[in-house]
């Protein structure tokens, strides 16, 4: 666990101060910290605990309860594969396997080079387009059949890792 730099600490302070007087602000604060830093560092939990009058253990418990929060920094590119029912019955598991193989990131983990995170997510509500994948926020429907998703992912891998990959 690396120490946070002053810049990040400043951002955390700002977020905590903004929600301090709200009722039950813990999750709101965590969302903003994660949006800002990509993960929830220890220092943020400590500051949130202090501001909300709870223990660090409780804040940590909240972070570990909700699947959207992570205590580890995410990869440079985040790929979400929807594992909702509709996507599942249309072969989302094969997609997961494919992305795992291509990026080297295991499900809900980050690849060793820190470039890719693969997250299996709950239903994204785009069932009409099943199976659905998201690369860095951009949604790809019918991702198993069409080429757009695979091609895009291949392009990114090529750009990041060069031809050897």
């Amino acid at each position: 666990m690396a120490k946070l730099n002053g810049d990040a600490l400043g951002k955390i302070d700002e977020i905590v101060a903004r929600h301090r007087n709200q009722a039950g602000p813990c999750i709101e604060m965590l969302h903003e910290v994660q949006n800002e830093l990509g993960y929830i560092p220890f220092e943020a939990m400590e500051k949130i605990a202090e501001a909300t009058g709870t223990s660090v253990a409780e804040v940590y418990g909240v972070v570990m309860f909700y699947s959207q929060f992570t205590t580890e920094p995410k990869g440079k590119h985040v790929i979400n594969v929807c594992l909702g029912t509709a996507c599942y019955v249309k072969g989302a598991q094969q997609l997961v396997d494919r992305v795992e193989k291509m990026t080297g990131a295991a499900v809900n983990k980050t690849s060793a080079d820190g470039l890719f995170s693969l997250d299996a997510t709950r239903c994204l509500g785009a069932c009409g387009l099943a199976p659905v994948c998201i690369i860095d926020g951009k949604v790809y429907g019918n991702a198993l059949m069409g080429n757009s998703f695979t091609n895009e992912l291949r392009k990114i891998i090529l750009a990041e890792r060069g031809a050897k990959a």
Binding site: S55, V56, A57, M64, F65
Partner: peptide, 25 residues
């Protein structure tokens, strides 16, 4: 720890079958 000592060293972590109880991390 929380209510008698007011400290809160221990907490639940993860959820479902993976839930465990302990100090942070």
């Amino acid at each position: 720890c929380q209510n008698v000592q007011g400290i809160g060293i221990l907490g639940l972590q993860n959820r479902g079958f993976k839930t465990i109880c302990g100090p942070i991390y």
